[in-house]
Design a binder for these strands. Structure first.
Lengths: 233, 233
DNA sequence: TGACTTTAGTAGCGCTTCGCTACTAATTCG
DNA sequence: CGAATTAGTAGCGAAGCGCTACTAAAGTCA
């Protein structure tokens, strides 16, 4: 009889688990991901710059979420504004001594200026060569993040407490990777009542000054919707 | 200096990895999940029936996807119509000898009648006591599956090649867990041109016979949409 | 036979949402 | 003073949604 309910029997304890954390941030009108510089490991050569996602092995005294948070803080020097699990992949050893299973997390980080030492914010449109599977992890993370953009108000975590609506629209455009129409964006935003106007205005060189808004979520119950056949691939 | 880019260094090889597979199927107008009966492991007692998700440890010669497929086939006796990763959880040992990390997959299975020996289709509204964390895995799987319902035409995988529109609507209602309005459902479906009518009709006892349709996806490019602020929690 | 029940399927109203063009408003530059 | 630049709004036409109310075709049963 096939082994149909072997819960916990004969567990193989030989796996190592690596966590990769893709931290995204809006930088210079591009969506950028934080990469760390790692020395080339092959000997007998001048060390060339290699790039990789912040990564580490799971330790025995922490949960996956804790490990992801530790790795994010270690590479960034601060806690990200959001940190969520994207995807797990792996199994079947690749013949190397690397980890067998990789679990990818992604995070969002406001643009607060520079990058920590030995790290760099790199536009997702210009990614360098990366270790195996990390490219797919970044792609999966972006897809997962975009799926959450209109489920959770994550865009506001990338902005300071008060911001202009043009700022907010730019964040949405970077997160989604496409342009939005100004009037439609504002209409939908106002209808949602997610922001409230302050009485401050910001002048940014030329042009009319922009009013500052703050995030002020109402307590609303989620309303159901019909089937979105138009979203089917 | 903090350990910021320790790719593959000091990997701990002590983890075991368990995969749980939640297989969903429409049964008796309920969404059901396949559970396997496991004998009570505590000794000195008459074995009471215990239920659990189909589960097994990851082996060293297979990938995560392969393991999930193996477990699904092992419990079901056939391959499911869909199998996708839902979530990984764990780390930090619970002091037991169980696996350290659990990775949940979910699948969809058409209603083809009975359940294999030692298994049972149980309505998700009447779940029995389950091993730790499996309840959360089922909840996460349902949420993930529902998020995919209008991204992928997964409902059609639960129906035979030809079906009535009432059948199709029932599948959508079970997958989404709520009632849909007949006229609106059909209007959206016809607008999508996802199905085409056959020239056959099915009479189901009383009432007017229903026309049979088949799934016939058009090749269409995905059109972008605006921000759905109204979906924000 | 003929009314009643049951299930399938459609018409269309009122409202909301969307993308878009076209406008007005307030500031700096020269 | 314009011209340029950025902020913000009005509103049109199309599409989508929820719903009530209808028609259509079968079985049931007096």
């Amino acid at each position: 009889m096939p082994d149909r309910y072997s819960v916990g029997r004969g567990a193989v304890r030989g796996f190592s688990i690596a966590l990769d954390v893709a931290l995204f941030s809006p930088r210079a009108h591009q969506l950028a991901v934080l990469l760390v510089a790692a020395a080339d490991q092959r000997s007998g050569r001048a060390a060339r710059a290699r790039w990789a996602l912040p990564s580490d092995s799971l330790r025995t005294d922490e949960s996956l979420d804790e490990a992801a948070s530790r790795i994010a803080r270690g590479s960034l020097g601060a806690a990200p504004a959001l940190l969520e699990q994207a995807v797990a992949q792996g199994g079947a050893r690749r013949g190397s001594d690397g980890p067998d299973v990789r679990i990818a997390y992604f995070g969002l980080v406001p643009d607060l200026g520079g990058a920590p030492r030995d790290t760099s914010w790199v536009s997702i449109a210009e990614l360098p060569a990366l270790p195996p599977r990390q490219r797919e992890e970044i792609d999966a993370s972006i897809a997962e993040m975009r799926a959450q953009v209109d489920q959770q108000p994550i865009a506001f975590r990338l902005l300071p407490a008060s911001f202009t609506l043009t700022d907010l629209q730019s964040v949405y455009e970077l997160l989604l990777g496409r342009r939005l129409h100004k009037a439609s964006f504002r209409r939908a935003l106002h209808a949602s009542a997610l922001v409230e106007a302050t009485d401050e205005w910001r002048s940014e060189g030329r042009g009319r000054p922009a009013q500052l808004f703050r995030y002020a979520p109402p307590r609303r119950k989620r309303q159901r919707r019909g089937i979105r056949f138009d979203l089917l691939t």
